[in-house]
Computed example of a mutant assay.
Amino acid sequence: MAAKAPDYQPVKRRGHSTVRVGDYLYMWGGDQPDLPEVHDNEKKKSMCSVMEVCHLRTGRWEQKPTTGNPPLGVRGYAAAAIGREIFYFGGYCNHDVCYHNSLYSFNVDTFKWKELSPTTSHHGPMMKHHCDMIAIKVNGEDYLVVIGGYGPSSNNIPKQPGAQYSEGLIPGNQQCNEIHFYKLSTDWLH
């Protein structure tokens, strides 16, 4: 009798998120073995162009390819789902002090990435990781709310009025209590 092949299991990782949509868990990114410590290259893009999917009813994992360009902030990003879309904000790029404040969507039906708001140090939330994001509905409109975070103090301007910033554990970094809203129907971030 032949031995049964073991079921697929994702590689070990940290700094990732797992989001539930329907009967599935979607796990992406994180610090994984052999993840290049560079801004972007073919190996990093290849590793980040897959989604780990777990069917909750069976407990089986599978790795599925994605299309489009995935976020560069692969560690410590925030994630939340609205309907059949998972949204990813910010994150650490896995090299130097490269943090992001971009917003991406991932469609669980098409497995396609879409950049909604690019990374910039001139507007929006500070470039950061270890923040959180929730999805809310206000007067029938879908919003994403990005809260707090940790990132460099040198290139994050302007600061959000009324928010508090304090020196982080690593010199040159800061933590904050910023709260930003992203209105999905208008691609409006404030």
Score class of each variant (00 low, 15 high):
68 G>P: 13
112 K>S: 10
35 L>Y: 02
123 H>K: 15
31 D>Q: 08
133 M>A: 07
56 L>I: 11
135 A>N: 04
105 S>W: 12
21 V>M: 00
135 A>W: 12
43 K>T: 14
70 P>V: 11
51 M>I: 12
137 K>A: 00
143 Y>C: 07
41 N>V: 12
54 C>L: 09
117 S>M: 13
52 E>D: 10
23 D>W: 10
23 D>G: 09
121 S>D: 08
25 L>V: 13
81 A>F: 13
39 H>L: 10
15 G>V: 13
125 P>V: 08
124 G>I: 06
76 G>F: 09
65 P>M: 05
17 S>F: 09
82 I>M: 02
143 Y>F: 10
15 G>M: 05
16 H>C: 09
82 I>R: 08
80 A>V: 14
41 N>E: 06
123 H>M: 12
132 D>Q: 09
115 E>K: 14
14 R>P: 00
98 C>M: 15
102 S>Q: 03
94 N>W: 02
25 L>C: 10
37 E>S: 08
131 C>W: 08
13 R>L: 03
63 Q>W: 13
33 P>F: 08
49 S>E: 14
41 N>L: 01
120 T>E: 04
71 P>L: 07
135 A>D: 11
59 G>R: 12
144 L>Y: 00
39 H>F: 15
54 C>H: 06
128 K>D: 05
15 G>P: 00
113 W>M: 01
119 T>K: 00
64 K>H: 11
107 N>Y: 06
47 M>S: 05
103 L>C: 10
80 A>S: 11
22 G>Y: 03
113 W>F: 02
121 S>I: 13
101 N>E: 04
51 M>W: 11
29 G>K: 04
81 A>Q: 14
64 K>E: 09
128 K>W: 05
120 T>R: 10
40 D>T: 12
49 S>R: 15
40 D>P: 01
96 D>L: 10
89 F>K: 12
37 E>N: 08
137 K>W: 08
103 L>W: 05
25 L>M: 13
54 C>T: 08
120 T>F: 12
58 T>G: 02
136 I>A: 06
21 V>A: 00
40 D>Q: 12
121 S>H: 14
21 V>F: 04
17 S>W: 12
38 V>C: 03
13 R>C: 01
14 R>W: 13
129 H>A: 04
94 N>I: 08
92 Y>C: 00
30 G>Y: 10
99 Y>R: 02
120 T>L: 02
44 K>P: 00
140 G>T: 15
135 A>H: 12
141 E>L: 06
18 T>V: 15
55 H>F: 14
68 G>V: 07
125 P>D: 06
48 C>V: 05
108 V>M: 03
89 F>M: 13
144 L>K: 04
79 A>C: 08
37 E>M: 09
51 M>C: 11
146 V>D: 03
58 T>K: 04
99 Y>K: 03
129 H>G: 03
76 G>T: 07
135 A>V: 14
44 K>G: 01
110 T>K: 05
60 R>Q: 15
59 G>V: 05
52 E>V: 07
40 D>W: 15
145 V>L: 06
66 T>W: 04
26 Y>I: 15
53 V>G: 01
71 P>Q: 09
125 P>N: 05
76 G>I: 10
28 W>E: 02
